[in-house]
Design a protein around this nucleic acid. Sequence first.
RNA 1: GACCCCAUCGUCUAGCCUGGUCAGGACACAAGCUUUUCAAGCUUGCAGCGCGGGUUCAAAUCCCGCUGGGGUCGCCA
Length: 443
Amino acid sequence: MVKVRFAPSPTGYLHIGGARTALFNWMYAKSQNGTFVLRIEDTDLERSKQEYVDEILDSVAWLGMSWDELYFQSKRFDIYRAHAEKLLKAGLAYKDNGAIFLKVKKQEIKIYDLIRGEINFDTSYFTAHNDDGAPVLDKEGQVVLKDEVLIKADGSPTYNFCCVVDDALMEMTCIIRGEDHISNTPKQILMYEALGYKPPKFAHLPLIMGKDGGRLSKRTGAVAVSEYRKMGFLPQAIDNYLMLLGWAPGNNQEIMNLNSAIKIFSIKKINKAAAVFDMDKLKWINTQYLKQMNVVDVASFLKPFLKERGFIDESTDEMWLQKIIGLYKGRFSTLDEFLERTDFIFQENIIIDSSLVLKHLTNDKKEIFFQLAQAYETLESFDSKSLEAVFRGLVEKCGLKASDVVHPVRVSLTGKDVGPGLFETMEILGRVKTVNRLRQAFR
RNA sequence: GACCCCAUCGUCUAGCCUGGUCAGGACACAAGCUUUUCAAGCUUGCAGCGCGGGUUCAAAUCCCGCUGGGGUCGCCA
Protein backbone atom coordinates (compact mmCIF):
# COMPACT_ATOMS: atom_id res chain seq x y z
CA MET A 1 0.00 0.00 0.00
CA VAL A 2 1.48 3.28 -1.13
CA LYS A 3 1.55 6.21 1.28
CA VAL A 4 3.07 9.57 0.52
CA ARG A 5 2.96 13.06 1.93
CA PHE A 6 3.27 16.68 1.03
CA ALA A 7 4.91 18.51 3.90
CA PRO A 8 4.88 22.28 3.49
CA SER A 9 6.11 24.72 6.06
CA PRO A 10 3.61 27.51 6.78
CA THR A 11 6.18 30.26 6.68
CA GLY A 12 4.86 31.57 3.40
CA TYR A 13 2.21 31.01 0.78
CA LEU A 14 2.09 27.83 -1.23
CA HIS A 15 4.31 28.50 -4.18
CA ILE A 16 4.22 26.99 -7.59
CA GLY A 17 7.13 24.65 -6.89
CA GLY A 18 5.47 23.36 -3.76
CA ALA A 19 2.26 22.88 -5.67
CA ARG A 20 4.07 20.73 -8.20
CA THR A 21 5.61 18.63 -5.43
CA ALA A 22 2.16 18.22 -3.90
CA LEU A 23 0.74 17.33 -7.29
CA PHE A 24 3.27 14.60 -8.02
CA ASN A 25 2.73 13.14 -4.57
CA TRP A 26 -0.99 13.26 -5.06
CA MET A 27 -0.85 11.77 -8.55
CA TYR A 28 1.41 8.99 -7.36
CA ALA A 29 -0.91 8.19 -4.45
CA LYS A 30 -3.99 8.20 -6.66
CA SER A 31 -2.35 6.21 -9.42
CA GLN A 32 -1.43 3.52 -6.89
CA ASN A 33 -4.68 3.67 -4.96
CA GLY A 34 -2.62 4.87 -2.04
CA THR A 35 -2.87 7.42 0.72
CA PHE A 36 -2.01 11.09 0.40
CA VAL A 37 -1.07 12.82 3.62
CA LEU A 38 -0.76 16.53 4.22
CA ARG A 39 1.65 17.37 6.99
CA ILE A 40 2.12 20.93 8.12
CA GLU A 41 5.71 21.41 9.27
CA ASP A 42 5.14 24.22 11.70
CA THR A 43 7.97 23.54 14.11
CA ASP A 44 9.35 27.03 13.67
CA LEU A 45 6.89 28.74 16.00
CA GLU A 46 8.36 32.14 15.20
CA ARG A 47 7.89 32.06 11.47
CA SER A 48 4.86 29.82 11.12
CA LYS A 49 1.59 31.66 10.74
CA GLN A 50 -2.00 30.52 10.82
CA GLU A 51 -2.83 32.60 7.75
CA TYR A 52 -0.24 30.65 5.79
CA VAL A 53 -1.66 27.35 7.02
CA ASP A 54 -5.10 28.46 5.85
CA GLU A 55 -3.76 29.66 2.54
CA ILE A 56 -1.83 26.44 1.86
CA LEU A 57 -4.78 24.22 2.71
CA ASP A 58 -7.00 26.40 0.59
CA SER A 59 -4.64 26.35 -2.40
CA VAL A 60 -4.11 22.60 -2.26
CA ALA A 61 -7.85 22.05 -2.17
CA TRP A 62 -8.41 24.59 -4.94
CA LEU A 63 -6.01 22.67 -7.15
CA GLY A 64 -8.24 19.66 -6.69
CA MET A 65 -6.04 17.63 -4.39
CA SER A 66 -7.80 16.05 -1.46
CA TRP A 67 -5.84 14.67 1.46
CA ASP A 68 -6.63 11.55 3.43
CA GLU A 69 -4.84 12.60 6.61
CA LEU A 70 -3.75 15.94 8.03
CA TYR A 71 -1.08 16.46 10.68
CA PHE A 72 0.52 19.39 12.43
CA GLN A 73 4.02 18.88 13.72
CA SER A 74 3.54 21.51 16.38
CA LYS A 75 1.13 19.13 18.07
CA ARG A 76 3.60 16.28 18.10
CA PHE A 77 6.53 17.73 20.01
CA ASP A 78 6.21 15.14 22.79
CA ILE A 79 6.59 12.36 20.23
CA TYR A 80 9.82 13.80 18.88
CA ARG A 81 11.14 14.34 22.38
CA ALA A 82 10.34 10.75 23.35
CA HIS A 83 12.29 9.54 20.34
CA ALA A 84 15.23 11.72 21.27
CA GLU A 85 15.14 10.37 24.82
CA LYS A 86 15.19 6.87 23.43
CA LEU A 87 18.37 7.64 21.50
CA LEU A 88 19.83 9.22 24.59
CA LYS A 89 19.16 6.06 26.58
CA ALA A 90 20.62 3.90 23.87
CA GLY A 91 23.77 5.99 23.97
CA LEU A 92 23.39 7.03 20.34
CA ALA A 93 22.78 10.65 21.24
CA TYR A 94 24.07 13.04 23.86
CA LYS A 95 23.08 16.27 25.50
CA ASP A 96 25.12 19.40 25.17
CA ASN A 97 24.13 22.92 26.17
CA GLY A 98 20.52 21.82 26.43
CA ALA A 99 20.43 20.47 22.91
CA ILE A 100 20.36 16.81 21.95
CA PHE A 101 22.79 15.65 19.28
CA LEU A 102 22.96 12.46 17.28
CA LYS A 103 26.48 11.05 17.21
CA VAL A 104 27.74 10.83 13.68
CA LYS A 105 30.56 8.49 12.79
CA LYS A 106 32.42 8.28 9.55
CA GLN A 107 30.56 6.10 7.12
CA GLU A 108 29.29 5.86 3.60
CA ILE A 109 25.61 6.29 2.99
CA LYS A 110 23.77 4.94 0.02
CA ILE A 111 20.38 6.26 -0.88
CA TYR A 112 18.17 4.84 -3.55
CA ASP A 113 16.30 7.42 -5.52
CA LEU A 114 13.45 6.35 -7.80
CA ILE A 115 14.26 9.11 -10.26
CA ARG A 116 18.04 9.28 -10.05
CA GLY A 117 19.10 5.83 -9.03
CA GLU A 118 21.79 5.32 -6.44
CA ILE A 119 23.34 8.35 -4.76
CA ASN A 120 26.33 8.00 -2.49
CA PHE A 121 27.47 10.22 0.35
CA ASP A 122 30.21 10.15 2.89
CA THR A 123 29.51 11.55 6.33
CA SER A 124 32.97 13.15 6.39
CA TYR A 125 31.57 15.84 4.20
CA PHE A 126 28.97 16.85 6.72
CA THR A 127 31.71 18.58 8.63
CA ALA A 128 32.76 22.18 8.45
CA HIS A 129 35.48 22.98 5.96
CA ASN A 130 38.39 25.35 6.00
CA ASP A 131 38.62 28.20 3.53
CA ASP A 132 40.66 26.05 1.20
CA GLY A 133 37.88 23.49 1.14
CA ALA A 134 39.70 20.88 3.18
CA PRO A 135 37.78 19.31 6.04
CA VAL A 136 38.66 20.35 9.57
CA LEU A 137 40.98 17.79 11.19
CA ASP A 138 41.59 16.97 14.83
CA LYS A 139 44.97 16.51 16.51
CA GLU A 140 45.29 12.97 15.24
CA GLY A 141 44.54 14.05 11.73
CA GLN A 142 41.02 12.65 11.72
CA VAL A 143 38.13 14.56 10.17
CA VAL A 144 35.97 16.21 12.76
CA LEU A 145 32.42 15.14 12.08
CA LYS A 146 29.58 17.42 12.86
CA ASP A 147 26.94 15.70 14.97
CA GLU A 148 23.35 16.31 13.99
CA VAL A 149 21.06 18.33 16.18
CA LEU A 150 17.89 16.46 17.10
CA ILE A 151 16.42 18.79 19.70
CA LYS A 152 17.46 22.41 19.83
CA ALA A 153 18.54 24.19 22.97
CA ASP A 154 15.10 25.76 23.26
CA GLY A 155 13.56 22.29 23.37
CA SER A 156 12.06 22.33 19.89
CA PRO A 157 12.90 19.52 17.48
CA THR A 158 14.82 20.10 14.25
CA TYR A 159 13.36 19.73 10.80
CA ASN A 160 15.34 16.63 9.85
CA PHE A 161 14.44 14.84 13.06
CA CYS A 162 10.69 15.56 12.90
CA CYS A 163 10.70 14.58 9.30
CA VAL A 164 12.25 11.20 9.98
CA VAL A 165 10.16 10.42 13.05
CA ASP A 166 6.97 11.33 11.24
CA ASP A 167 7.77 9.63 7.97
CA ALA A 168 8.60 6.48 9.92
CA LEU A 169 5.63 6.61 12.28
CA MET A 170 3.22 7.52 9.52
CA GLU A 171 4.65 4.67 7.48
CA MET A 172 5.46 6.57 4.35
CA THR A 173 6.47 4.27 1.55
CA CYS A 174 8.09 6.90 -0.60
CA ILE A 175 9.29 10.43 -0.01
CA ILE A 176 8.68 12.61 -3.03
CA ARG A 177 10.17 16.05 -2.57
CA GLY A 178 12.28 18.68 -4.28
CA GLU A 179 15.86 18.15 -5.32
CA ASP A 180 16.92 20.73 -2.77
CA HIS A 181 16.39 18.01 -0.16
CA ILE A 182 18.91 15.57 -1.59
CA SER A 183 21.60 16.72 0.79
CA ASN A 184 19.25 16.29 3.76
CA THR A 185 18.66 12.68 2.85
CA PRO A 186 21.93 11.16 4.15
CA LYS A 187 21.44 12.93 7.48
CA GLN A 188 17.95 11.54 7.68
CA ILE A 189 19.13 8.04 6.79
CA LEU A 190 21.44 8.23 9.79
CA MET A 191 18.46 9.03 11.97
CA TYR A 192 16.38 6.19 10.55
CA GLU A 193 19.22 3.83 11.34
CA ALA A 194 19.71 5.12 14.87
CA LEU A 195 15.99 4.85 15.54
CA GLY A 196 15.88 1.38 14.08
CA TYR A 197 13.47 2.26 11.31
CA LYS A 198 13.76 1.15 7.74
CA PRO A 199 14.21 4.15 5.45
CA PRO A 200 11.54 4.67 2.79
CA LYS A 201 12.21 5.07 -0.89
CA PHE A 202 13.04 8.52 -2.14
CA ALA A 203 12.22 10.43 -5.29
CA HIS A 204 13.79 13.83 -5.69
CA LEU A 205 11.99 16.03 -8.14
CA PRO A 206 13.90 18.42 -10.38
CA LEU A 207 13.43 22.05 -9.42
CA ILE A 208 11.38 24.61 -11.27
CA MET A 209 13.38 27.62 -12.34
CA GLY A 210 12.59 31.12 -13.46
CA LYS A 211 13.17 32.53 -16.93
CA ASP A 212 16.58 33.78 -15.83
CA GLY A 213 17.68 30.23 -15.10
CA GLY A 214 17.80 30.87 -11.38
CA ARG A 215 15.39 29.88 -8.72
CA LEU A 216 11.78 30.81 -9.24
CA SER A 217 11.23 34.03 -7.36
CA LYS A 218 8.99 37.07 -7.22
CA ARG A 219 11.51 38.78 -9.44
CA THR A 220 10.90 36.36 -12.28
CA GLY A 221 7.12 36.39 -11.91
CA ALA A 222 4.36 35.29 -9.63
CA VAL A 223 5.24 32.43 -7.32
CA ALA A 224 2.23 31.98 -5.07
CA VAL A 225 -0.55 29.74 -6.26
CA SER A 226 -2.99 32.27 -4.88
CA GLU A 227 -1.56 34.90 -7.19
CA TYR A 228 -2.29 32.74 -10.21
CA ARG A 229 -5.74 32.22 -8.84
CA LYS A 230 -6.25 35.96 -8.62
CA MET A 231 -4.96 36.43 -12.14
CA GLY A 232 -7.76 34.21 -13.34
CA PHE A 233 -6.07 30.93 -14.07
CA LEU A 234 -8.15 27.79 -13.80
CA PRO A 235 -6.96 25.17 -11.33
CA GLN A 236 -7.21 22.49 -14.01
CA ALA A 237 -4.88 24.50 -16.23
CA ILE A 238 -2.33 24.97 -13.48
CA ASP A 239 -2.44 21.27 -12.64
CA ASN A 240 -2.06 20.40 -16.28
CA TYR A 241 0.86 22.74 -16.77
CA LEU A 242 2.60 21.66 -13.59
CA MET A 243 2.37 17.98 -14.43
CA LEU A 244 4.07 18.71 -17.73
CA LEU A 245 7.08 20.16 -15.93
CA GLY A 246 9.21 17.07 -15.63
CA TRP A 247 6.73 14.52 -16.80
CA ALA A 248 5.06 13.74 -20.11
CA PRO A 249 1.87 11.75 -20.62
CA GLY A 250 3.24 10.38 -23.88
CA ASN A 251 1.68 10.10 -27.32
CA ASN A 252 2.42 13.78 -27.86
CA GLN A 253 -0.51 14.58 -25.65
CA GLU A 254 -0.34 17.67 -23.51
CA ILE A 255 -3.83 18.67 -22.57
CA MET A 256 -4.79 16.13 -19.97
CA ASN A 257 -6.86 16.34 -16.83
CA LEU A 258 -5.90 14.86 -13.49
CA ASN A 259 -8.24 11.90 -13.80
CA SER A 260 -6.68 10.74 -17.04
CA ALA A 261 -3.19 11.55 -15.82
CA ILE A 262 -3.36 9.35 -12.73
CA LYS A 263 -4.23 6.39 -14.92
CA ILE A 264 -0.89 6.56 -16.67
CA PHE A 265 1.31 8.33 -14.14
CA SER A 266 4.65 6.73 -13.51
CA ILE A 267 7.17 8.10 -11.08
CA LYS A 268 10.01 6.48 -12.98
CA LYS A 269 9.22 8.57 -16.03
CA ILE A 270 9.87 11.81 -14.22
CA ASN A 271 12.64 13.87 -15.74
CA LYS A 272 15.91 14.52 -13.97
CA ALA A 273 16.63 17.99 -15.30
CA ALA A 274 15.25 21.21 -13.87
CA ALA A 275 12.54 22.96 -15.87
CA VAL A 276 12.03 26.63 -16.61
CA PHE A 277 8.60 27.97 -15.80
CA ASP A 278 7.01 29.38 -18.95
CA MET A 279 4.10 31.74 -18.42
CA ASP A 280 3.23 31.73 -22.14
CA LYS A 281 2.60 28.03 -22.14
CA LEU A 282 0.56 28.22 -18.94
CA LYS A 283 -1.58 30.88 -20.59
CA TRP A 284 -1.98 28.76 -23.67
CA ILE A 285 -3.14 25.82 -21.58
CA ASN A 286 -5.53 28.04 -19.70
CA THR A 287 -6.96 29.16 -23.03
CA GLN A 288 -7.42 25.55 -24.05
CA TYR A 289 -9.46 24.82 -20.93
CA LEU A 290 -11.44 28.02 -21.29
CA LYS A 291 -12.31 27.04 -24.83
CA GLN A 292 -13.46 23.61 -23.75
CA MET A 293 -15.83 25.12 -21.21
CA ASN A 294 -19.30 26.28 -22.11
CA VAL A 295 -20.28 29.91 -21.57
CA VAL A 296 -22.31 29.10 -18.49
CA ASP A 297 -19.30 27.62 -16.75
CA VAL A 298 -17.00 30.41 -17.88
CA ALA A 299 -19.56 32.88 -16.60
CA SER A 300 -19.70 31.32 -13.17
CA PHE A 301 -15.91 31.26 -13.09
CA LEU A 302 -15.67 34.93 -14.03
CA LYS A 303 -18.55 36.25 -11.92
CA PRO A 304 -16.83 36.47 -8.54
CA PHE A 305 -14.00 38.46 -10.08
CA LEU A 306 -16.35 40.80 -11.91
CA LYS A 307 -18.38 41.35 -8.77
CA GLU A 308 -15.28 42.09 -6.78
CA ARG A 309 -14.40 44.84 -9.21
CA GLY A 310 -17.88 46.22 -9.10
CA PHE A 311 -18.43 45.44 -12.79
CA ILE A 312 -21.54 43.43 -12.13
CA ASP A 313 -23.96 42.88 -9.28
CA GLU A 314 -26.95 40.75 -8.38
CA SER A 315 -29.17 42.54 -10.87
CA THR A 316 -26.89 41.91 -13.84
CA ASP A 317 -28.62 40.01 -16.59
CA GLU A 318 -27.17 36.52 -16.82
CA MET A 319 -27.91 36.16 -20.52
CA TRP A 320 -26.19 39.42 -21.27
CA LEU A 321 -23.06 38.31 -19.42
CA GLN A 322 -23.08 35.02 -21.27
CA LYS A 323 -23.37 36.85 -24.56
CA ILE A 324 -20.29 38.90 -23.74
CA ILE A 325 -18.36 35.79 -22.82
CA GLY A 326 -19.50 34.04 -25.97
CA LEU A 327 -18.24 36.94 -28.02
CA TYR A 328 -14.87 36.97 -26.34
CA LYS A 329 -14.31 33.26 -26.11
CA GLY A 330 -10.94 32.38 -27.54
CA ARG A 331 -9.91 36.01 -27.27
CA PHE A 332 -8.57 35.86 -23.74
CA SER A 333 -6.38 33.45 -21.85
CA THR A 334 -6.93 34.73 -18.33
CA LEU A 335 -9.35 36.84 -16.37
CA ASP A 336 -6.90 39.72 -16.52
CA GLU A 337 -6.96 39.62 -20.27
CA PHE A 338 -10.72 39.39 -20.30
CA LEU A 339 -11.01 42.53 -18.22
CA GLU A 340 -8.45 44.30 -20.31
CA ARG A 341 -10.57 43.74 -23.38
CA THR A 342 -14.05 44.17 -22.01
CA ASP A 343 -13.67 46.97 -19.49
CA PHE A 344 -15.39 49.41 -21.85
CA ILE A 345 -18.58 47.36 -21.59
CA PHE A 346 -18.79 47.59 -17.83
CA GLN A 347 -17.49 51.08 -17.32
CA GLU A 348 -19.66 54.14 -17.71
CA ASN A 349 -17.00 56.27 -19.34
CA ILE A 350 -14.00 55.31 -21.39
CA ILE A 351 -10.72 57.00 -22.01
CA ILE A 352 -9.50 56.95 -25.57
CA ASP A 353 -5.79 57.11 -26.09
CA SER A 354 -4.83 60.31 -27.90
CA SER A 355 -2.88 58.46 -30.55
CA LEU A 356 -6.03 56.51 -31.43
CA VAL A 357 -8.06 59.71 -31.55
CA LEU A 358 -5.55 61.26 -33.87
CA LYS A 359 -5.49 58.27 -36.14
CA HIS A 360 -9.17 57.40 -36.33
CA LEU A 361 -11.41 60.18 -35.12
CA THR A 362 -10.63 62.60 -37.90
CA ASN A 363 -13.04 65.39 -38.72
CA ASP A 364 -14.14 63.85 -41.99
CA LYS A 365 -15.93 61.22 -39.90
CA LYS A 366 -17.94 63.76 -37.97
CA GLU A 367 -20.92 63.69 -40.29
CA ILE A 368 -21.28 59.93 -40.50
CA PHE A 369 -20.94 59.66 -36.70
CA PHE A 370 -23.73 62.18 -36.31
CA GLN A 371 -25.98 60.32 -38.70
CA LEU A 372 -25.23 56.95 -37.11
CA ALA A 373 -26.05 58.27 -33.66
CA GLN A 374 -29.27 59.73 -34.97
CA ALA A 375 -30.32 56.52 -36.66
CA TYR A 376 -29.35 54.24 -33.79
CA GLU A 377 -31.22 56.36 -31.29
CA THR A 378 -34.50 55.46 -32.88
CA LEU A 379 -33.64 52.09 -34.37
CA GLU A 380 -36.49 49.74 -33.61
CA SER A 381 -34.55 46.61 -32.78
CA PHE A 382 -31.06 47.14 -31.40
CA ASP A 383 -29.53 43.91 -32.69
CA SER A 384 -26.36 43.35 -34.64
CA LYS A 385 -28.12 42.59 -37.92
CA SER A 386 -30.20 45.75 -37.91
CA LEU A 387 -27.25 47.79 -36.72
CA GLU A 388 -25.10 46.53 -39.56
CA ALA A 389 -27.82 47.15 -42.16
CA VAL A 390 -28.30 50.75 -41.03
CA PHE A 391 -24.55 51.23 -40.85
CA ARG A 392 -23.89 50.03 -44.37
CA GLY A 393 -26.77 52.02 -45.72
CA LEU A 394 -25.60 55.29 -44.21
CA VAL A 395 -21.98 54.74 -45.03
CA GLU A 396 -22.81 54.17 -48.66
CA LYS A 397 -25.03 57.22 -48.77
CA CYS A 398 -22.14 59.30 -47.51
CA GLY A 399 -19.90 57.85 -50.18
CA LEU A 400 -17.60 56.16 -47.69
CA LYS A 401 -16.18 52.69 -47.42
CA ALA A 402 -17.41 50.50 -44.58
CA SER A 403 -13.93 49.58 -43.45
CA ASP A 404 -12.99 53.26 -43.21
CA VAL A 405 -15.76 53.84 -40.70
CA VAL A 406 -15.70 50.54 -38.81
CA HIS A 407 -12.41 51.27 -37.09
CA PRO A 408 -13.16 54.83 -36.03
CA VAL A 409 -16.49 53.70 -34.63
CA ARG A 410 -14.87 50.85 -32.76
CA VAL A 411 -12.36 53.25 -31.25
CA SER A 412 -15.10 55.63 -30.18
CA LEU A 413 -17.13 52.86 -28.57
CA THR A 414 -14.45 50.71 -27.02
CA GLY A 415 -11.35 52.86 -26.76
CA LYS A 416 -9.49 50.13 -28.61
CA ASP A 417 -8.66 49.52 -32.23
CA VAL A 418 -9.04 45.78 -31.93
CA GLY A 419 -11.90 43.60 -30.80
CA PRO A 420 -14.68 41.29 -31.92
CA GLY A 421 -17.19 42.14 -34.63
CA LEU A 422 -18.29 45.73 -34.36
CA PHE A 423 -22.02 45.14 -34.58
CA GLU A 424 -22.08 42.38 -32.00
CA THR A 425 -20.09 44.71 -29.80
CA MET A 426 -22.70 47.43 -30.25
CA GLU A 427 -25.51 45.08 -29.45
CA ILE A 428 -23.86 44.11 -26.19
CA LEU A 429 -22.94 47.67 -25.32
CA GLY A 430 -26.55 48.67 -25.69
CA ARG A 431 -28.30 51.62 -27.22
CA VAL A 432 -27.58 54.24 -24.57
CA LYS A 433 -23.82 53.73 -24.38
CA THR A 434 -23.47 53.29 -28.13
CA VAL A 435 -25.32 56.47 -29.02
CA ASN A 436 -23.69 58.51 -26.27
CA ARG A 437 -20.22 57.46 -27.22
CA LEU A 438 -20.82 58.16 -30.89
CA ARG A 439 -21.97 61.66 -29.97
CA GLN A 440 -19.11 62.26 -27.55
CA ALA A 441 -16.51 61.21 -30.10
CA PHE A 442 -16.33 64.70 -31.58
CA ARG A 443 -16.86 66.82 -28.52
C1' G B 1 35.42 26.35 -2.35
C1' A B 2 33.66 21.19 -0.85
C1' C B 3 29.91 17.67 -1.71
C1' C B 4 25.63 16.21 -4.58
C1' C B 5 22.46 16.46 -8.95
C1' C B 6 21.78 17.53 -14.06
C1' A B 7 22.72 18.39 -19.67
C1' U B 8 17.84 17.03 -26.91
C1' C B 9 15.16 23.38 -30.77
C1' G B 10 14.80 30.15 -27.16
C1' U B 11 11.25 27.20 -23.54
C1' C B 12 8.52 22.39 -22.00
C1' U B 13 9.41 17.67 -23.77
C1' A B 14 9.38 12.34 -26.85
C1' G B 15 13.39 9.25 -28.06
C1' C B 16 18.10 7.02 -23.94
C1' C B 17 17.13 1.64 -20.01
C1' U B 18 16.79 -2.91 -24.58
C1' G B 19 22.61 1.56 -29.87
C1' G B 20 20.51 1.22 -36.45
C1' U B 21 13.10 5.19 -37.92
C1' C B 22 15.00 12.34 -42.52
C1' A B 23 15.68 13.40 -33.91
C1' G B 24 8.78 13.57 -33.14
C1' G B 25 5.23 16.95 -30.56
C1' A B 26 3.86 21.58 -27.93
C1' C B 27 4.69 26.92 -26.49
C1' A B 28 6.99 31.13 -28.51
C1' C B 29 8.53 33.31 -33.15
C1' A B 30 7.84 34.18 -38.75
C1' A B 31 4.87 33.78 -43.26
C1' G B 32 0.24 32.66 -45.71
C1' C B 33 -5.11 31.73 -45.74
C1' U B 34 -9.61 33.70 -43.37
C1' U B 35 -11.49 38.48 -41.64
C1' U B 36 -14.22 45.37 -40.89
C1' U B 37 -9.50 44.97 -37.02
C1' C B 38 -7.70 41.63 -33.23
C1' A B 39 -7.95 36.90 -31.39
C1' A B 40 -9.12 32.03 -32.59
C1' G B 41 -8.65 28.36 -36.45
C1' C B 42 -6.02 26.04 -40.62
C1' U B 43 -1.33 25.59 -43.56
C1' U B 44 3.81 26.30 -43.89
C1' G B 45 8.44 27.72 -42.03
C1' C B 46 12.58 28.71 -38.43
C1' A B 47 15.16 26.19 -34.76
C1' G B 48 18.14 21.15 -31.08
C1' C B 49 21.28 16.09 -29.43
C1' G B 50 27.14 21.47 -25.05
C1' C B 51 32.50 19.94 -26.29
C1' G B 52 36.32 16.14 -26.68
C1' G B 53 37.72 11.28 -26.47
C1' G B 54 36.60 6.23 -26.54
C1' U B 55 33.44 1.27 -27.38
C1' U B 56 30.97 -0.32 -32.04
C1' C B 57 29.97 -1.92 -38.75
C1' A B 58 26.71 1.90 -36.46
C1' A B 59 26.16 6.57 -30.68
C1' A B 60 21.20 11.60 -28.97
C1' U B 61 21.26 6.58 -26.93
C1' C B 62 26.82 2.89 -23.60
C1' C B 63 31.80 4.53 -20.97
C1' C B 64 35.44 8.44 -19.52
C1' G B 65 37.01 13.47 -19.30
C1' C B 66 35.90 18.62 -19.88
C1' U B 67 32.69 22.57 -19.92
C1' G B 68 28.25 24.62 -18.46
C1' G B 69 23.97 25.01 -15.24
C1' G B 70 21.49 23.94 -10.63
C1' G B 71 21.25 22.43 -5.44
C1' U B 72 23.23 22.01 -0.37
C1' C B 73 26.66 23.38 3.11
C1' G B 74 21.73 26.86 10.07
C1' C B 75 20.25 24.63 17.15
C1' C B 76 15.36 27.56 9.08
C1' A B 77 12.24 24.28 6.99
